[in-house]
Design a protein around this nucleic acid. Structure first.
Lengths: 152, 152
DNA sequence: TTTGTAAATAGGAATAGTTCCTATCTAAGA
DNA sequence: TCTTAGATAGGAACTATTCCTATTTACAAA
């Protein structure tokens, strides 16, 4: 389940550089939290990260893990699996379709494009399990947020 | 922001048939909740659905909306935007990559495939905003869940 | 149409995930 | 070494979601 030592080291170096570059303090907690995420390939949630890091940093608080993870997300050092930290949202469209999602305001729009409904499934993926559906998500800036950004 | 009348009617009919078929009672609440989701294209969350439906069914409870929406999801009548109702999960892989997600246990695995990193963006999507990244998600049954299902 | 009953709902209580508050601590520049 | 802006710990507060249960209702059968 773990990433190769060498790759972890590469990520840690990149991490430290990134913090320095943005003038964000390199604390013991941030180091250990990032190390944990960098070495895990199982997409842990905050609770799991907290438990794992606590073995090495017994006084770490849950709040620190939350704060730190959002800092990392803002910096682009880690990504969120799925879309966002928003609450669950529903989609009454029961035809196959795909999404454009604005990473700023969270707006989501459907679109259909048969070319994307059945992309060729790579061998690697077939070895992971049985694919039932395919979803393409384009992420970016919606019109409104683009305008708003331009007028700042 | 709303779906055409005709399409809504089509969805409502399909909805009633689906409930009858599965022997699930067609209640006033379920009708109005589904109608709301079927006519909205803005991917509302539970709170929003609750507020909108309450204008027509003032005594509806939040719990009913939650229960009902999960029923619809289980029946395949509506989909969840993004992956699942799980809490936020993180991904320390900072190279472009894509995911295979098991819809039963939630396990997620990364894979890289440059062919998917820059799929042609349809015109329709370009009109929605500026695309910054592309994410392909294959959903299905992971090996473990497939085996478990086979042995039932 | 009336009746019986399993299933569904309303409303509030309980839980769980996340964020906030603030006293204390620390990284890092002077 | 000293200074201080920024970070952390720990618990309280908040918010989304689920649970509990008395009451109501859909619908099948009489």
């Amino acid at each position: 389940m773990n990433i190769a030592e060498k790759e972890v080291r590469r990520r840690m170096e990149h991490f430290q550089k990134a913090l320095h570059q943005k003038g964000i303090k390199v604390t013991h907690q941030r180091m250990e939290i990032y190390r944990e995420v960098a070495r895990s390939s199982d997409h842990p949630n905050v609770e799991v990260i907290f438990r794992r890091v606590r073995e090495r940093v017994p006084t770490i608080s849950l709040d620190t893990v939350y704060r730190t993870m959002w800092t990392f997300v803002d910096m682009g050092l880690v990504q969120i699996l799925g879309s966002s930290k928003e609450r669950v949202r529903f989609d009454g469209n029961n035809e196959p379709h795909h999404h454009f999602v604005c990473t700023v305001c969270g707006a989501a729009a459907d679109f259909t494009d048969m070319k994307f409904d059945a992309l060729p499934v790579p061998k690697k993926v077939r070895s992971m399990g049985k694919v039932i559906s395919t979803h393409v998500e384009f992420r970016g800036l919606c019109k409104k947020c683009k305008q708003k950004k331009a007028s700042d």
